[in-house]
Design a protein around this nucleic acid. Structure first.
Lengths: 357, 357
DNA sequence: TTGTAGGCGTTATCAA
DNA sequence: TTGATAACGCCTACAA
């Protein structure tokens, strides 16, 4: 029973046609007479042939139909973030139009053995994030001559990027908060760098994560003196911890918190509730992302809606364009400000000074 | 500048050795003298050759180093579930030892064009879930003669499965609840089938999802008369909705809710808070999964901890075993009961009858 | 330790 | 509409 699998030649022979004709029946690239097609199909069925071997096809065509997606974290960590999850969906769509699938890759292969950027049969690669490892991954991919797109990362000039107007968007939310009369404002930011544990940002703290820096700059454009607390990750729990820290001292409580993600904002709201503060009456909170935060109802965050799915789709399209031989331009997406029920005018009596960090 | 990429033959020629020698330098499968190696490496560098073309190598070897993971939903939906996310991590580990990567596949290709089970260069496939489509996917894969493993799904006898002792585990939690004196208990279950919108289960409701059915059976073993409300999905929001429905009528309120997932349990707790009930004093709640529910602190769910990462890793190992030519046995994992602070003895005065659904 | 030879299964090209 | 031919780039017996 150890007979080898049927090949297209076997099918052709069985059907009494040439291999090229049989091939064409499966690829549909050239007209074939109905009678011939029938014979080939039947022969295939008889032999249990289920179609061309993708490996051979990809060698011949020079395409594997696979796009690598490189994460800098554990897959588990990456997918906990709804924004990335949405991006993946968009990306899946984007490359599907190209007839490709997504291969998950970690840029820091733990076991050393796994499929890697070096050895996977990729047509193209999408890099996500902005760590130092990205640099390395980028070099690998480019050495292989594979088209690459970077989402949310600084990759040098000749690599198309998919970006967001982080600073402008955040400035918009901050302006909204300011227009409501808030003066005592604290920013709760995303991590300052990989391995960050949470804590107040000082003037000399180096912020290595682009997104964090840009959004913070946007907030500072409006509130130059605002203190900023960088959370350990983008999650409700970390937001909660940050919120506790920010609201710890009743004397120095802000009347508004600008959070750099919806999850962080949700955590801050929890912390406010714990401290006996009402949102938005006693504390206004803004988020960033515009995702659905599971379990946050009945709050609707005042936030910046980013087109996460679109970003993924755009990356897919960019990759597709490059594979067609074209040049993919970088794209900068715009966030949309959405007012929810977590911001309200500042109560006059609580306006007070805040410490500069 | 449109010169074709260098091949291993080019490198060999440049280095003054034969192609096979050059090949061996890259694969390391055979000893090569240092001098030769040097020459080959240098030649490669000079030509910008970055290693064997994975497409050609995979044809020759008959292995692509790619394992397909088939989901029955949108990727976004799938990854919102922390359990799946953990499984993916385990799976990534499991197949890495095999030198493979994970290719994301949706069993219901929306655009029709994308990489599919039919055409992707897979060495093996892992199917997750238990819908009707699984059947179809399974047939496709097996027709191709590709090793396959099913996680949490009924796949017929000769397909290795990775399973959980759902019924026994749930029975254990139910027993705990019963030992605490609860008699008025409602089960909040996972969806009864794809497309389920949430609602009470009646005796004649057909439950098409294995996990739902098994866990429910476990609860019914202990509380044969318990009513059951099937949520629309495993999320806090759906749990909240279910909780509202379950707690709606003060006259018929249960003293304990057995939820089939931690996310659902978290939602039920929210609903309880909303209804002015204290957990666990007025209402005991149990979950299932043992994940970290972001934002649930300070509650610690009484729950069944399932080895999600292990499940993924086991699937990876099973696949690896099959690729080695061996037979992979099905594995059944066991959950561990963990008591948190969301269950407490039933208060005597609220013991009351519950309607049978 | 190195080289030779043959084929992995397909498909693009061109001619019939 | 069909068929012959020639790669695609690599790897592995096996021989030297």
């Amino acid at each position: 029973m150890s007979m080898r699998r049927a090949t297209i030649s076997d099918v052709a022979r069985e059907a009494g046609v040439s291999p090229s004709t049989a091939s064409v029946v499966f690829s549909g690239k050239t007209p074939v007479s109905d009678a011939t097609r029938r014979r080939v199909i039947d022969a295939a069925a008889a032999l249990g042939y289920t179609g061309p071997d993708p490996r051979a096809a990809s060698l011949r065509r020079g395409r594997s139909g696979i796009v690598g997606v490189v994460f800098e974290e554990h897959l588990g960590t990456a997918f906990l973030d709804p924004v990335k999850t949405l991006m993946m969906d968009g990306l899946a769509d984007g490359v599907a139009s190209l007839g490709a699938g997504l291969l998950l890759l970690r840029d820091h292969e733990p076991t050393g053995g796994g499929a890697s950027l070096m050895s996977a049969p990729l047509d193209a690669a999408v890099l996500i994030g902005c760590s130092g490892l990205l640099r390395e991954s980028l070099d690998t991919v480019r050495a292989r001559g594979i088209p690459v797109v970077v989402i949310e990362g600084d990759a040098g000039d000749d690599v198309p990027r998919i970006d967001l107007d982080n600073r402008e968007a955040q400035r918009q939310a901050a302006s909204h908060v300011r227009a409501l009369g808030h003066r005592a404002v604290v920013v709760v930011t995303l991590p300052a760098r990989a391995g960050w544990d949470g804590g107040w940002l000082r003037d000399d703290t180096e912020i290595l994560v682009d997104v964090t820096r840009e959004r913070l700059a946007g907030a500072m454009d409006v509130f130059p003196d605002a203190a900023a607390y960088a959370a350990g990750a983008s999650s409700i729990d970390e937001g909660f911890a940050a919120g506790r820290a920010v609201l710890a001292d009743p004397e120095r409580r802000p009347t508004a918190v600008i959070a750099q993600s919806d999850l962080l904002a949700a955590g801050v709201i929890r912390a406010a509730e714990e401290a006996g503060l009402r949102v938005p009456e006693d504390l206004s909170v803004t988020g960033f992302d515009g995702i659905v935060v599971d379990g946050l109802a009945p709050y609707e965050l005042t936030t910046l809606v980013q087109p996460a799915t679109e970003k993924g789709r755009a990356a897919g399209s960019a990759v597709a364009a490059m594979l067609e031989g074209g040049d993919a331009a970088s794209i900068r997406f715009t966030c949309t400000f959405r007012e929810g029920n977590t911001t309200a005018p500042a109560a006059a009596h609580v306006a007070g000074g805040l410490p500069r960090s």
